[in-house]
Computed example of a mutant assay.
Amino acid sequence: MTDKAVNTAQENWDQRLGFLMHDVSRLRRKVFDEVMKPEGITRSQWWVMAHLSRHDGMSQSDLADVLDLGRAALGGLVDRLEALGYVRRGADEQDRRTKLVLLTPEGRAMIERMRVKSDVMSEAILQGLSAGQRHQLADMLSLVKRNLLAFDTSRA
Rank of each mutant, 00 (worst) to 15 (best):
K30N: 12
V48M: 00
A109T: 01
S122G: 12
R134C: 03
A50C: 11
M36R: 00
E39S: 15
M58V: 09
I111Y: 14
R29W: 14
R96G: 06
K117N: 08
R115F: 15
M1C: 05
A150S: 05
Q60I: 08
Q10A: 09
S130C: 05
D3M: 10
V35W: 01
V101G: 02
A73R: 07
A91W: 09
V101Q: 01
V116Q: 04
Q45N: 07
R97P: 06
K145D: 14
T98E: 06
P105C: 02
N147Q: 13
L143Y: 15
Q133V: 00
I125R: 03
L81K: 00
W47I: 11
D152P: 09
A156M: 06
P38R: 12
V87T: 07
D139N: 10
D14Y: 14
W13T: 15
Y86R: 00
M21F: 13
M21W: 11
S44R: 11
L77R: 13
G57H: 05
A5S: 11
S53I: 02
N147W: 15
R146D: 14
G57D: 04
V24Y: 10
P38T: 06
L102Y: 04
T153I: 15
S118P: 04
S61Y: 09
E11V: 08
A64S: 08
G85E: 03
V48K: 02
G70N: 05
D62L: 11
E11Q: 14
G40A: 02
T42L: 09
L77Y: 10
A91T: 13
M36F: 04
L137F: 07
L27K: 12
L141C: 06
A91H: 06
L143C: 14
D68C: 10
A72E: 13
F32E: 03
A91Q: 09
Q10T: 10
D65N: 12
E82C: 01
L126P: 05
M1V: 08
Q136V: 01
R16Y: 11
W47H: 13
H51S: 06
N147F: 11
M58C: 07
S118D: 06
A91M: 13
